[in-house]
Amino acid sequence: MTAVRPVDAASILLLDRSGGHIRVLVGKRSSKHVFMPDVYVFPGGRRDASDRLVPVASPLHPLALERLALRAGRRCSDSRLRALGVTALRELHEEAGIAVGTPLSAPAEGSLSFRPDLSPLRFLARAITPAGMVRRFDTRFFTLFTDEAGVDPAAATASHELEDVRWVDIFDHKGIEMPDITVLILEELQKSIQENKSLPFGRAAPLYYTQRGRFLRDLL
């Protein structure tokens, strides 16, 4: 059996801190998905080859880029890391209808209708799907505050990719079925928020991966 290699992916934890509690946007994956159907996740998906070519309104913060580059491999260029930020915002738009960036008056057919603004993205964590799964991803998780991005929380809408899009208190998600890795990433967010509510750009990020059957957590 041929080993499945993990492919680059990005996911985004969109955070609303306008009320008394911090909420994160999640949605239910369709039952038609082969990978993790019928569970609630953050918007996200695999990196497209074209994501490297998308012009951006602003680049990633230097400290976020620096953290992303750690243990990324010698072949992982800045353009590939920047593309992960583009992936996160593209998926947010495709799955939840939220555009973060500068609107384009006449976008090319099949391209984004906005120029992504990567500057407010914080790098929160990285997780590599264990071997043996039908799909494997090397996923970078980003955080984004709605107020910093000029996003109206009420603008989030469901899609064929994510059903029942909803805002969930990051400290209270009882009754919502999430994959183990989603819960782990949410716990990382909780720790980070408790340490510093502003989520500094240069904060160390955990890396989750499996080696010789052991599930490990390192810091980047």
Score class of each variant (00 low, 15 high):
A72L: 04
A69D: 15
L124Q: 00
L70Y: 14
S58C: 13
G97Q: 06
E188A: 07
E161Y: 15
L184E: 14
R47E: 12
E91M: 01
C76L: 12
L53S: 14
F114L: 09
G73W: 05
G45V: 08
A125D: 06
L89Y: 01
A131P: 14
A154N: 03
F171D: 15
V183K: 07
P59N: 15
A88T: 02
G97P: 03
I181C: 04
F145E: 07
T182G: 01
A99Y: 06
L81H: 03
D48K: 15
P130T: 00
A156C: 13
G110E: 10
A155Q: 15
R82P: 03
P107G: 09
L92A: 00
D169N: 11
A83N: 09
M133V: 13
E163G: 11
I128P: 10
F114S: 01
L184R: 13
T143L: 10
P107C: 03
H160T: 15
M178Y: 01
F114D: 00
A83T: 04
R126E: 00
A96C: 14
G73T: 07
M178E: 01
G150F: 11
T102V: 11
A155F: 08
S105R: 07
D48A: 14
D78L: 07
D48L: 15
R71Q: 10
R52Y: 08
T157V: 14
L89C: 05
A99V: 05
A49I: 09
P62F: 10
E163R: 14
L92D: 01
G85T: 02
A158M: 01
R67P: 00
L92R: 05
L65Y: 05
G45L: 02
S111V: 09
T102S: 06
L118P: 01
L118R: 08
A131Y: 12
E163A: 15
G45N: 04
S58N: 12
R135H: 08
V134S: 10
L68T: 09
S79D: 12
L162Q: 09
R135E: 13
V183C: 11
R126Q: 06
A99M: 01
P107S: 02
S58E: 14
M133I: 10
L65D: 11
R140D: 10
V134L: 10
T143K: 06
F171E: 13
R126H: 09
F141T: 11
G45A: 05
A156W: 08
L60I: 12
A131C: 08
L84P: 03
D147T: 10
I128F: 05
A99D: 04
V56P: 01
E109F: 02
A106C: 11
L112C: 02
E187S: 13
L60Q: 08
M133L: 13
R80G: 00
A96L: 06
E91Q: 07
D164R: 08
T102F: 10
